[in-house]
Design a protein around this nucleic acid. Structure first.
Ligand SMILES: [Mn+2]
Ligand SMILES: [Mn+2]
Ligand SMILES: [Zn+2]
Ligand SMILES: [Zn+2]
Lengths: 148, 148
DNA sequence: TAGCTAACTGAAAAGGTTTTTCATTACGAG
DNA sequence: CTCGTAATGAAAAACCTTTTCAGTTAGCTA
């Protein structure tokens, strides 16, 4: 299976002087196989299909590293905020489906004018922001209402 | 001390059929005395100045109630996301100072156009968003760099 | 004001999650 | 292939949050 996205991400580890281990491959596979935020525990469970004895501690350590390398981004969820989705390096946002949790990354960010207003009104020098958007994905819009 | 903001908030409990207890008063005092997000543990500590044996469990329960009454809002912080600030009912955002954590609530929200763009690009029907802004407050802008 | 009762409380325990420690393993340079 | 180091899993510790339960308190009624 020569998955191009997998290879690209896998190389990020090496490119920054880190080892490309089986547990790390398993975590990549788990993250690539889904389009919704996964908790560390979920990543461990799914990752064990690829690395039988993948440990939860390793998942935490790998996510911390991937976060530093901007391969992954923490997503704040309504309950707790400790899900993770794959991310493009740099400033992006995510839209999460409130029914099935499917997530899509949004690359542009036109908040400039609004943030200028905020700066003027508050006297704060704005240095960053965290925006998460919730909605209903195309699939779920065509589903009958609340199932399960 | 007839603090008007305190009285207004205190009445919210009664207005919704809840009791106005000493622990709840203490939590209000703690939240009113500061302008930065406080964790449940911090609220307990500060609240104990007003109610000596304020329990942490009560803080959790009261925050849950206040959140339902829109008296308070959970703020997602870079590390963990379980601080709380007082909030105006309805849709608002907060700007948090990255140095001293001072927070100001921002009432307007001009994300409409951007969210329309997102809807078009993703096919999602947008139902809500969570925006947190970080910056440097006016006071900290006049401070010499990293102290502490 | 005194009495009553449901709402509320704190302590303890249970349940989760995240971090630390440490002996062992495996990546990958040489 | 060999070796040194980064990385790993298990166990334990440290935290954080929720549940349970017996006792207390707020606020209504008389
Ligand atoms: Mn943005
Ligand atoms: Mn969060
Ligand atoms: Zn969906
Ligand atoms: Zn500040």
């Amino acid at each position: 299976m020569m998955d191009h996205r997998f290879d690209t991400l896998a190389h990020e580890f090496r490119a920054h002087g880190h080892k490309l281990t089986q547990p790390r491959r398993a975590i990549l596979h788990a993250l690539l196989a889904t389009a919704k935020p996964l908790s560390p525990a979920e990543i461990q469970q799914r990752g064990q299909d690829f690395c039988h004895d993948l440990g939860l501690v390793t998942v935490y350590r790998t996510l911390e590293l991937m976060d530093a390398l901007e391969m992954v981004r923490a997503v704040h969820l309504a309950d707790g905020c400790h899900g993770y989705v794959l991310a493009t390096p740099g400033h992006t946002h995510h839209v999460v489906c409130e029914r099935c949790h499917a997530v899509i990354e949004v690359i542009g960010c036109e908040l400039g004018d609004f943030l200028d207003t905020v700066a003027t009104r508050t006297g704060y020098q704005i240095t960053g922001h965290w925006l998460e958007i919730s909605g209903v994905c195309a699939d779920c819009q065509h589903e009958p209402p609340h199932e399960a």
